[in-house]
Simulated scan of single mutants.
Amino acid sequence: MFGISPLGWLHTLGSLPAIPLAFYMFARHGRIVPRSVPGMAYFAFMLIGALTVFLVAHQPVSNVIGAVTLLLLLVGYGIGRLPSLGRAARYIETICLSLTAFLLMVPTVSEVLRRVPDGHPFVTDPKSPLLLGSQAILLVALVLGVTAQIIYLRRHGKAAGATAS
């Protein structure tokens, strides 16, 4: 079905739960919160997806996306444990984890458009306006989302500093 191998299904179904988890955390907290139950589940599902992409990828760019996603995921989840970075750690964590969600959504949207409906996909050409428009929308959402997150973190940090004085 959809031309996906059994290993491809493992990759797809292993990483798919990360999408609603990311949306939940963005809606609830405005960011992916690594030290929470949904955050730990997101980490596990993203790790499955990032590691299995190397087994199913047919294009070199897929391996690059997988490696970058893995790096951002590890930095995003590890940076908060470095007390020497102070507030900067929260900014780096937020940006890295938002980028992982973006790097999950770009191939997800592309693959859905290129495989659904089965046998007659919406997109057959990689330069299709629908595909390129979808990717552009994701990029705009990333830029606006990360900007909003940084503004929120700055305001929240200043408010916390003002009440501590």
Results as ranks from 00 to 15, higher is better:
residue 44 A to C: 14
residue 47 L to K: 02
residue 106 V to G: 07
residue 53 V to I: 15
residue 42 Y to G: 02
residue 94 T to R: 11
residue 54 F to K: 01
residue 102 F to S: 02
residue 50 A to G: 09
residue 62 S to C: 10
residue 64 V to Q: 11
residue 95 I to K: 05
residue 86 G to H: 10
residue 84 S to N: 10
residue 105 M to I: 03
residue 102 F to C: 03
residue 48 I to T: 06
residue 44 A to Q: 08
residue 94 T to V: 14
residue 49 G to W: 01
residue 85 L to G: 10
residue 104 L to V: 13
residue 99 L to Q: 04
residue 51 L to G: 04
residue 89 A to F: 05
residue 54 F to Y: 05
residue 95 I to F: 07
residue 56 V to L: 04
residue 94 T to G: 11
residue 45 F to Y: 06
residue 43 F to A: 12
residue 42 Y to A: 02
residue 93 E to M: 10
residue 62 S to M: 13
residue 108 T to Q: 02
residue 108 T to L: 10
residue 57 A to Y: 05
residue 78 G to D: 04
residue 91 Y to Q: 02
residue 74 L to W: 03
residue 108 T to V: 07
residue 97 L to F: 03
residue 74 L to F: 07
residue 70 L to E: 04
residue 78 G to T: 06
residue 58 H to C: 00
residue 41 A to R: 15
residue 43 F to V: 06
residue 44 A to W: 08
residue 108 T to R: 03
residue 86 G to K: 10
residue 65 I to L: 02
residue 43 F to W: 11
residue 117 P to W: 13
residue 74 L to Q: 03
residue 51 L to H: 00
residue 63 N to S: 12
residue 58 H to Y: 02
residue 97 L to C: 06
residue 100 T to M: 04
residue 108 T to I: 04
residue 45 F to S: 14
residue 55 L to K: 04
residue 64 V to F: 08
residue 46 M to D: 03
residue 41 A to C: 14
residue 82 L to A: 11
residue 70 L to C: 07
residue 110 S to R: 04
residue 99 L to E: 03
residue 67 A to F: 06
residue 52 T to S: 15
residue 70 L to F: 15
residue 98 S to D: 14
residue 102 F to T: 06
residue 79 I to T: 10
residue 72 L to T: 09
residue 81 R to M: 12
residue 73 L to R: 13
residue 95 I to Q: 05
residue 49 G to A: 02
residue 88 A to S: 12
residue 71 L to Y: 06
